[in-house]
Computed example of a mutant assay.
Amino acid sequence: MKLSALALCIPLLAAGQLAHAAPDYAQVHDILAKNACLACHAVDKKVVGPAYEEVAAKHKGQADAAEILTKHIKEGTSGNYGPIPMPPNVGISDADIKTVVEWLVAGAPH
């Protein structure tokens, strides 16, 4: 490989890594707090609903994880983690859902 081609690849590789970085937990926490998600969920322990770490682990490696999680947040779900249903969250913006889902897909780091 020519040196010039390699030099062009390095910035692209770095940009790709940044694009897949998990959102900052402080930002995600603000979204979770303002949308009342923390009333039923915590990062590392079951409250009413599952811990976010459990959700992340369940969907780890699934190609359609982001799509599934987005649907669950928007429309609610039942029976995935026990008998208590999760109601739809109609008040959360699509941008905030995207941030939360990216964080979950990255493993819910905190």
Rank of each mutant, 00 (worst) to 15 (best):
K2Q: 09
K2R: 10
K2H: 13
L3F: 13
L3N: 09
S4Q: 05
S4Y: 05
A5Q: 15
L6H: 10
L8Q: 14
L8T: 11
C9D: 09
C9K: 10
C9T: 12
I10V: 12
P11V: 13
P11F: 09
L12P: 11
L12A: 13
L12S: 14
L12Q: 11
L12C: 13
L13K: 07
A14E: 12
A15C: 05
G16C: 06
Q17I: 15
Q17M: 13
L18W: 08
L18R: 11
A19E: 06
H20K: 14
A22K: 08
A22P: 08
P23E: 00
D24R: 04
D24N: 11
Y25C: 15
Y25A: 15
A26P: 07
V28R: 06
V28H: 12
H29G: 09
H29D: 14
D30W: 04
D30I: 01
A33P: 09
K34W: 10
N35R: 03
A36F: 12
C37T: 03
L38A: 01
A39P: 03
A39G: 07
C40F: 05
C40N: 12
C40D: 03
A42D: 07
K46P: 05
K46C: 10
G49T: 03
P50Q: 02
Y52P: 01
E53C: 12
V55W: 01
V55F: 03
A56H: 03
A57Q: 08
K60R: 15
K60E: 15
Q62Y: 02
A63N: 01
A63F: 00
D64S: 03
D64V: 02
A66I: 09
A66H: 01
E67S: 13
E67Q: 14
E67D: 14
I68N: 06
L69D: 05
T70Q: 07
K71C: 01
K71L: 08
H72I: 11
H72M: 11
K74L: 01
K74E: 01
E75M: 01
G76P: 05
T77S: 15
S78A: 12
S78L: 11
S78F: 06
N80A: 12
Y81C: 05
P83C: 09
P83L: 14
P85S: 06
P85E: 02
P85K: 10
M86A: 10
P87N: 13
P87A: 12
P88K: 00
P88F: 00
G91Y: 06
D94F: 01
D94E: 13
A95Y: 00
D96H: 06
I97S: 08
I97Y: 03
I97P: 08
K98R: 04
T99Q: 12
V100H: 06
V100I: 02
V100F: 05
V101C: 00
V101A: 01
W103E: 13
W103V: 15
L104D: 02
A106S: 12
G107T: 06
G107F: 02
A108K: 01
H110L: 10
